[in-house]
Amino acid sequence: MAAKTTILTLPKEEFVHPGNRACTGCGLSIAYRIGLKALGSDTILIVPPSCLTVLQGLFPVASTKLPCLNVTFASTAAAATGMLEALKAQGREHIKVVGWAGDGGTADIGIQALSGAAERGDDFLFLCYDNEGYMNTGVQRSGTTPRGAVTANTPIKGKMQQKKDVPAIMAAHGIDYVATASSAYPLDLYDKIKKALSLQGTKYIHIHTPCPPGWGFEPRYAIKIGRLAVETGYYDLYEVEKGEFRLTGASEKLVEKRQLVPVGEYLKTQSRFRILTPEQVADTQARIDRKWGGYYRTNE
């Protein structure tokens, strides 16, 4: 693997203007700023409705220096295919096509088009920023909202169902590169995007992006909470490269240390988990321990 990017080697050129419409402490705005540095200037973005649509600004002002096609909610990946084929027809294949969608536009309404494009193996990168809910429309549950989270349409009992495992679904398509990342580890995200761009076919990166208003925490804790999600083993950083699963970065180190932070430390930082009973927290811990037991065994 190439040398890890550091804050000193990160490119200076910015593709996102400051003063955009993202909320203070937005995980997406961190991932977007660093992610666009990794994508570079020879890129066309495709964006469905999401917080990113708002972040990018209102006509005729744009906060992004890359060309961007806004598309309907369900159609990000299909639009990517159409754009790729148009570029091919024009001899402009060198331009990178990148879909950047939220969890709703990926896991729910967008999954049919994404699955179709991945099955065709179309040569583009799909980035899902997962703030675990429909935040742009006022915090409703999505397929990736975790169990127990209170949202605007699970207001009293919280979401009853588990989080949909989209990276695993994407890996099941047999594409060459699937990775998870977090806005709390932006340099890891940078390196994973770079790696994805070096590969052919459909690439998928799932980015955990803490959301202060949606999750119920103070903006200054956005990085801390993103890290806690990883340090508790609640959200794992990994790559599936040509079918080979490998924990990466901070998650890889946790396997060596074998010392996860108790998940209660993560859950108690966010008001969306306020209704969880001690039994539910213990159940969440047990699920994490089972998952990590598997990681430890593979590493023995």
Binding site: A78, A79, T81, A113
Partner: peptide, 12 residues
């Protein structure tokens, strides 16, 4: 994989 995507591809 669908007509919705057919026109999405044409739009892009």
């Amino acid at each position: 994989e669908s007509e919705h995507s057919a026109l999405a591809a044409c739009i892009a």
